[in-house]
Computed example of a mutant assay.
Amino acid sequence: MTASPETALTDVRYEEDGHVGVLTIARPEVHNALRRRTYDELEELVRTTTARVLVITGEGRSFCSGDDVRELMGGGDPEKRPPRPAPRLTPAAGALLTSDVPVIAAVNGAAVGWGMEMALMADFRVAARRAKFGELFVKRGLCSDVAGIARLAQLVGREKAAELLFTGEIIDAEEAGRIGLVGRVVDDDQLLPTALELAGRIAANPPLAVGALKAGLREALDPDWTELGRWVSTRLGELFATEDHREGVRSFLEKREPRYVGR
């Protein structure tokens, strides 16, 4: 496997093997939590890859633990939280959702918050037995990003999607396989070999035809991601200003039970 010539990356690692690209979130010391730089590198690599198939995974024992709450949520302090942009689709989400390159999420551990969103934005999810999944946004007083609202229900049905979103429950790989959230559950040491074997079979096919098929699925099944992104970011802007959001973040950082007040 040869490394990409890209040299400026700090949070993400990218390698290509033939026509298959492997993108690894590389912040294992914080369970691959996403900061602004991570989002930017992820978006850039997805938009510029020349691979025919892209595999996304995480370094260490976590796939992705979602947003870095200290940087992106200001640790619950509104004075420290960076200003939000005008309502829009998250750029990294836009890159993943509109790319004609097939994406395989090789989920090697916890995929929670935006980590679960990222897995949902992939075309295929292969999970190691130690993987866990959770839409934790409600626990922070927030709503999920677009994939949790639209793509999750496509996979598991509206009622189960509502249960996962409204409760913030974390489920294991076996349950994720049972409800159809993931397509394959494999032994931990077989995760990347399984994902790469699937990627290789897809990459061996004519890339223009594969890209057209992915675009066709998007046309037939997906909502208007840009409009949904604007709706989500508007709601998030309102929810970020609530006491419940601040309490959700602070209780997480202080490792205690939250006390929500509904305002």
Rank of each mutant, 00 (worst) to 15 (best):
R70Y: 07
S4T: 14
P78W: 07
A162S: 12
T194H: 00
S65L: 11
M1R: 12
L191P: 03
T167F: 04
R70S: 10
C143I: 12
G76Q: 06
T242V: 10
F166V: 12
K80L: 15
I104P: 07
L191W: 01
L120M: 00
G177H: 11
L165G: 05
A93T: 00
M121I: 03
L181T: 07
V249M: 04
A150G: 02
S144R: 03
I170H: 02
R178E: 14
H31N: 07
W114R: 13
L23Q: 04
A106F: 04
L213R: 11
E44D: 13
R235Q: 13
D67G: 13
V103N: 08
V103Q: 09
G262N: 04
I25H: 02
M73F: 13
D40H: 05
L228H: 08
R250P: 06
R70M: 13
V126H: 03
K132M: 14
R140G: 12
A110P: 09
C143P: 05
R35C: 09
S144T: 11
P83L: 06
I179L: 04
T7K: 15
R250K: 14
E247S: 08
G248M: 04
M1S: 14
Q190N: 08
G134W: 00
P206V: 07
E135T: 03
V146R: 00
L54T: 06
V107W: 06
A93N: 04
R158N: 02
A92Q: 04
R35Q: 09
N205Q: 15
G157D: 01
P223Q: 10
T242N: 07
D68C: 02
T50W: 08
D11T: 13
P5V: 02
L165W: 00
R36A: 15
V22T: 15
T10I: 05
P78S: 09
A204C: 09
L164Y: 09
L23P: 06
D189R: 05
K139Q: 11
V146M: 00
Q190K: 11
L217R: 15
C64W: 09
L239P: 01
H245L: 00
L97D: 01
S144I: 02
G66V: 08
A92N: 06
S4Y: 08
G66T: 05
E29S: 11
P102T: 03
V20F: 06
R37Y: 01
R151I: 12
Y14W: 14
A122I: 02
P5C: 01
L136Y: 13
M118N: 05
E59V: 01
L136D: 08
D188Q: 08
M73G: 03
M1I: 10
T49F: 07
G58S: 00
L45C: 07
V107R: 11
L120Y: 02
T90K: 01
L23D: 05
E16P: 02
F124Q: 10
E29T: 07
T57H: 03
P78N: 12
R263W: 13
R230F: 00
L9W: 10
G141Q: 10
R36T: 15
K139G: 09
V55R: 02
A128I: 08
K139P: 01
L152D: 06
K160Q: 12
D11H: 13
A8D: 14
S62W: 11
L152T: 02
G157C: 00
E254R: 11
F133R: 07
